[in-house]
Each structure stands twice: as C-alpha cells, then as structure tokens.
C-alpha cells in the first residue's frame, strides 16, 4: 500500500533510468503472488502477459479509504472471484485470490464483526488460495483480535495465510505477527510473511516461514537490494511480488527483478524459485493451484454474466502506436 513520498528527491538519487530489456527473461514464466489488479488497467494486464506473467494472486485489502458498510465488503470479495478473475483470463493470466479482513479496517470493530460472519462464505470458493492479506497496520488491540480470529479460520480451513507486515514499526510488528501465528499452532510453512526487508528477513527464514518481498518504488524494496538479499540468503522460501495497486507501483516488478537477477549473475534456478516456483509451492498448499491451468489460451470471446471486456467489434490488441482509436 502506498504512502505519499517525496518522489522528486528519490528520483534525484536514482540517476539515469536503465531500460527494461525484456529479452533477458524471454521465455521465462512468472507468478506474481501479490498484486491488486482491481486498481490496474487492461494495459497492465497486457504488459504483464507480454512479460511472461502467467498467474497471479490478488489479496483482499482495503480500497484506499475505509468501507462504511458490509455490502461493500461482500461486493468486493465477489468481484475478486468473479469479474476480476474473468478480466484476467482475457489476457491469458490465471487469477487467484486470498480473502480476508485487512488490518486497517479491523479497527472498525462494529463492521469487522459483520465481515467475520461472511468470510466463511468466500474462503472455500474455487481459486481462493489463502486467508489474506491480514496482520498488523497500527498494531492496535482490534487488529490483533481479528488477526487471531482469522488465523483460526485459516487453520480450520487448512489454508495458507498471507501476512501483511506493517510499514511502521516493521521489525517488532513482524516478530509479533510470527509469534501469534505460532501461538495459534500454525505451521510456519503455511504462513507467508510479506513485505520483508533487510531488517526482518533473517528471523523470518530462521523461524521457518516463507519470506515474501515487495518490489515497490520509493517506499518498500528496490530490486537491486533484492538481488543482494538472494545472494546473501539463497532462494529457499523467498519470493518476490509487486503489490502493485493504485499507488505509484509497477505490475512488471517480478519480471523486471528476474531480468536484473539474470544480469547480476544469479542462477536460472534461483531466479525461477523466487519469481515463480516458491510462490506456487507455498500457496498450492490450498489445493487450489494447478499449473496445467496456466497455459490456457485467452478466450477473448468468453463472457462473464453477459459482459465482455471487448466492446462492439474491438480488436483484442489495439495498436497503441496509432493515433486513430477505432
């Protein structure tokens, strides 16, 4: 999730941009296990498909502002397993999601109670690969309460958990998230601790959890730092994601990081693990991921409840270089 940040300052320290040479990773497949597609455009889907992203996970989160009623939650969860999944399929990308009550909105306890009641209606749906993203934001008592309740839900359903770690007070928040998961008897191998950095990664791996890293400009990890982390810690139980959303983020973060890893001399095997295989291994524990589904050709004539993304005679791939839009 984004924060407002002084972009001009960071740009000044970044130097001349280096072009993303997609040929470095041509033919490779990628899995982005954390990306909020509802806030992205069809151009992003197209670019991701072109860059080799074959599947993704969209964790349930907030909408940038708090919802005020239960129906907004219901419709949002329905859209993740409905319209958004369909939209993704139009570009040949297999769309999975995790379902949960995000930490920020856990603070509205009255509404949170109601949301907890409808969660069981969604978590057993096809293609729901975990409970997420849940965890701490401000680290309040209410956040802890709903984190614990959802861990119990995950245990009961046998689903992996995708844990959002806080931006602020990250190190303590991350430790606390792990402590609580263990306290509830979850197997750390079923728990993906997300948004790690240099300060948190060691403990997460040492304790047997999966360590996910979000490559997100300005506020989270940069991919050069990511390369160094894989060099230092190896590829086991590490995965990268874009967490692209409505902030200044990059839906190509996973393939770009793979390309950079290739350029900086990491082995193809390690690259495959952190940009594809590990995420599948972790989330396939839900029983909901079958790689055979990834290669489905986009069926551009399919319809979702009578709707299609193709409007009256539109070509599947418009020529973006043309000034004429017909």
């Amino acid at each position: 999730m984004c924060c407002s940040s002084s972009i001009a300052r960071d740009k000044a320290t970044m130097g001349e941009p280096e072009a993303f040479d997609i040929s470095a990773v041509k033919g490779m497949k990628f899995f982005d296990p954390h990306v909020h597609m509802t806030s992205r455009t069809t151009d992003d889907y197209q670019a991701m498909a072109d860059a080799g992203v074959v599947a993704l996970i969209e964790p349930a989160f907030w909408l940038g502002q708090p919802r005020t009623g239960l129906d907004s939650f219901r419709d949002y969860y329905s859209s993740l397993i409905g319209w958004e999944r369909f939209r993704s399929s139009q570009f040949g990308i297999k769309h999975y999601c995790t379902i949960g009550l995000n930490s920020r909105e856990a603070n509205n306890e009255n509404l949170a109670e109601q949301v907890m009641e409808i969660l069981p209606l969604f978590i057993y749906k096809e293609g729901v690969v975990g409970i997420g993203e849940i965890g701490f934001d401000d680290q309040t008592a209410a956040e802890e309460k709903y984190y614990r309740l959802q861990l119990e839900l995950a245990k009961e359903a046998g689903l992996p958990v995708q844990v959002h770690t806080p931006h602020r007070d990250k190190k303590k928040g991350t430790q606390r998230s792990m402590d609580i998961a263990l306290e509830h008897g979850l197997d750390p191998y079923q728990v993906i601790i997300d948004h790690n950095n240099e300060e948190t990664v060691k403990e997460v791996l040492d304790r047997g959890f999966w360590a996910a890293f979000t490559i997100y400009p300005f506020t989270k990890m940069g991919n050069e730092r990511m390369v160094e982390i894989v060099k230092q810690y190896g590829a086991e139980r590490i995965m990268v994601n874009s967490a692209a959303d409505w902030g200044i983020s990059d839906p190509l973060a996973v393939p770009k990081t793979a390309a950079l890893m290739k350029m900086r001399g990491l082995s193809d095997q390690d690259i495959e693990l952190v940009t594809y295989r590990n995420a599948i291994t972790a989330f396939a524990q839900s029983g909901q991921i079958d790689e055979a589904d990834f290669n489905a050709q986009a069926d551009l004539t399919a319809k979702f409840e009578g709707n299609t993304i193709l409007r009256g005679g539109q070509q599947p791939r418009p020529d973006k270089s043309s000034i004429i839009i017909s």
């Binding site: 602020r168 007070d169 990250k170 303590k172 240099e198 300060e199």
Partner: peptide
Amino acid sequence: LTLVDYAKERWAAG
C-alpha cells in the same frame, strides 16, 4: 524505540 528501529531500517535501505 520505534523511531530508532525505523532509522535503522532506513539506513539498511541506504
């Protein structure tokens, strides 16, 4: 204490 952790995290990220 939290701010010192935050400073360390910033330093680690350059």
